[in-house]
Design a protein around this nucleic acid. Structure first.
Lengths: 260, 260
DNA sequence: CGTGTCATTGACATTCCTCAAGGTCGGTGG
DNA sequence: CCACCGACCTTGAGGAATGTCAATGACACG
């Protein structure tokens, strides 16, 4: 399952070079000039895998590195008053973590692994040295930042005044696109997050998410069993996401308006 | 009202140097080393004021500059399908605009002036040259990016599963804090945005915003007349924002539980 | 085989949206 | 000066969508 040749060091697993990581174009160094990718590779630290439920960093703690998800899934949450929290994002292999802390001295959110995950750590100090001399590293950083800003925009748009079923359908389609990007089956999803995580991400109650999933199943759009999902009707899901009413389980409208 | 000594050039108003801009510490060059601030000042262009309703840049259009609000108020919106749009942010003097487009080649949102506004334009190409040699410019950029990311987080948290009255109270307090930062009276606000803009920003219907404003007025928390606001009870607003139920207009609980 | 976590489902209450009808203000032109 | 218009705001009525509370179920783990 996992690579065989390990050279365990204190607190780290063996180094794999970025060039044989397997993440392909999804990951960050691939978007740099080869020499610069090697530099980034050199400052990169591969950490021991973190377990499901473990925290990679806490909001407010000193921010000395950014991270790239190599395998698994990590979510970013913003702690709120009274043990409450808001899920900000789910990060998959190739995604970057911790950008919101780079400019200030502190992390802007908390990163929690949703399953056993491997993570590459990039110390910011070293990254700054790199950026001092390599224009394309600066350029990369900019792109990462603005991508991050734009996905924030999408998240806001998702939460802003849309029906629960539209949000959930959009969310499932996002997961599907993501699976495609990772060269997995875009119609078979294995959710790494709980209903409650999804609900928080979408600004809904977890019961609403649960109910909608079973309703979508009744409508033949998906098949759901615990955390395994099959998307049976991508077009139907897209229609739902766009705000199409979504026919009732009784299917009155199957063949156009019925005679009264 | 406005400065007297103007040196109109083609398409531009007179240049004021950053050092006598009047924005004080709120603005960006103030956070740089003096020499670097001068450099930034040199590449900065002050544009002719844009009128209420005018668009500074469009989502999807080529992104060649970032902007700083010098006076007035500008909102960032994300255009959605069918003429719909999501308000992402309101930007006030000292705030930066257009960061989400810097990494990619295109603007990530549309910027619309809510009132006659003066804007400083910073061409990105020149900014890149500056960043190549000045570490503190790179540092500044990072801080701007991560601030922007973190305010995005706050926006998501605001929209995520909170009651309408909590959102609106939080919003008013944000405006108040902002007024304080701009050395204006934090208890007297002049809204530059419409009810519908506020509603979009908060993920509500405009009628809900309107109703809540009058309800808050009935409860003695604020005084509202069209777009002029007085915050009469900041503590009460904070309580509302934190989720305190907020007593009914009939004020049953004014002196503790009544006798039954 | 208990125990805890997570998910489902139902009943009910509430919030908030939609639709619709004025109302106010500022500007424009007769 | 007044009438009219358009943009924006307020208010009401009614209902749909969603949250809350509570009970139950399924599975994983020890």
């Amino acid at each position: 399952m996992s690579p065989v040749r390990l050279f365990p060091e204190a607190g780290q697993l063996a180094r794999h070079s970025c060039s044989n990581c397997g993440l392909g174009e999804g990951c960050i160094p691939r978007r740099l000039e080869p020499e610069e990718a090697d530099l980034l590779d050199a400052i990169r630290v591969e950490r021991r895998p973190i377990e499901r439920g473990a925290t990679l960093f806490h909001a407010g703690s000193p921010c000395r590195s950014v991270y790239v998800v190599r395998s698994g899934c990590v979510m970013c949450v913003l702690p709120l008053a009274e043990g409450d929290s808001q899920v900000l994002a789910f990060r998959f292999p190739g995604d970057i973590l911790g950008l919101s802390g780079v400019g200030g001295a502190k992390h802007g959110c908390t990163a929690v692994a949703l399953e056993r995950s491997r993570i590459c750590e990039v110390p910011i100090a070293a990254l700054h040295e790199l950026a001092a001399n390599a224009p394309s590293v600066r350029n990369l950083l900019e792109r990462l930042f603005s991508n991050s800003l734009q996905s924030g925009h999408q998240h806001v748009a998702l939460m802003g005044k849309r029906l629960a079923r539209e949000r959930l359908a959009t969310f499932l389609l996002m997961l599907s696109d993501n699976a495609r990007r990772l060269q997995q089956d875009p119609e078979r999803l294995r959710l790494s997050m709980s209903r409650s995580d999804i609900a928080s991400y979408l600004g809904l109650a977890l019961e609403t998410v649960s109910r909608l999933l079973t309703r979508m199943q009744d409508q033949g759009l998906i098949e759901v069993d615990r955390r395994s999902l099959r998307l049976l009707d991508l077009a139907g899901l897209r229609a739902l996401a766009e705000g199409e009413p979504g026919q009732g389980a009784d299917e009155q409208r199957r063949h156009g308006p019925a005679f009264s």
